[in-house]
């Protein structure tokens, strides 16, 4: 399946900020992060289609996956 990915903040230098990934239909957030070479200790928040998600959550076709660093409220 194809998904779109966007990286924010300090995570973006670790891989291209926006890209499309081609993953197995059973892929999880964790697998996407590993494919991108992200340091999981620097990931503070993940959303799938704007919904807060966890590293073990499954992805779905055409979803939008976002990785954020640790953030503080404004």
């Amino acid at each position: 399946m194809k998904i779109s990915v966007e990286l924010f903040g300090q995570l973006s230098p670790q891989a291209p900020r926006r890209q499309t990934l081609d993953l197995a239909s059973t892929a999880t957030v964790q697998e996407a992060a590993e494919l991108l070479g992200l340091n999981s200790e620097e990931i503070g928040m993940v959303t799938i289609d704007g919904i807060q998600s966890e590293m073990q959550d499954p992805l779905h076709t055409d979803c939008r996956l976002c990785f954020f660093p640790y953030l503080s409220g404004g």
Partner: peptide, 9 residues
């Protein structure tokens, strides 16, 4: 730093 995250949420 949180503009994008709040927008995404």
């Amino acid at each position: 730093s949180i503009v994008a995250a709040v927008n995404e949420m």
